[in-house]
């Protein structure tokens, strides 16, 4: 019950931020990200859409915001919500032509 109250409090406190959280789609056609650099707010989401004709493996090795989407075939999308501020390098582990910078601010 205490956990529920804490969660409820967090929910109300974060309500405004949640309502404003933005979502942008990053495409991958032609083995390049559709944007080389994006500026987003903490809590925003980037949806990585593989609209290419080949498998991609989007990752970030930037300390504090590491993630690995694994092998994603064409015709699939995966959302990533950025919870830490900073300049985050996102790449494809397979294709070095795919690299982008995500600037996350408060």
């Amino acid at each position: 019950m205490n956990t529920f109250k804490v969660m409820l409090a967090i929910a109300f406190l974060s309500g405004t931020a949640v309502a404003l959280a933005a979502e942008r789609t990053i495409k991958q056609k032609g083995r390049i990200f559709s944007e080389a650099e994006v500026a987003i707010k903490k809590g925003d989401t980037l949806v990585f859409l593989n609209d290419d004709n080949i498998i991609h493996n989007v990752i970030s090795t930037t300390p504090g915001t590491q993630f690995n989407l694994g092998s994603i075939p064409p015709g699939n999308s995966t959302p990533v919500t950025f919870t830490n501020t900073g300049n985050i390098s996102v790449i494809c582990a397979i294709h070095p032509s795919m690299k982008m910078l995500v600037k996350v601010t408060d």
């Binding site: 609209d51 970030s60 015709g75 699939n76 999308s77 919870t83 830490n84």
Partner: peptide, 12 residues
């Protein structure tokens, strides 16, 4: 470190 959601099929 980051919240990775569910991968979904998309019609392309």
């Amino acid at each position: 470190e980051a919240i990775v959601g569910e991968t979904r099929k998309v019609d392309i």
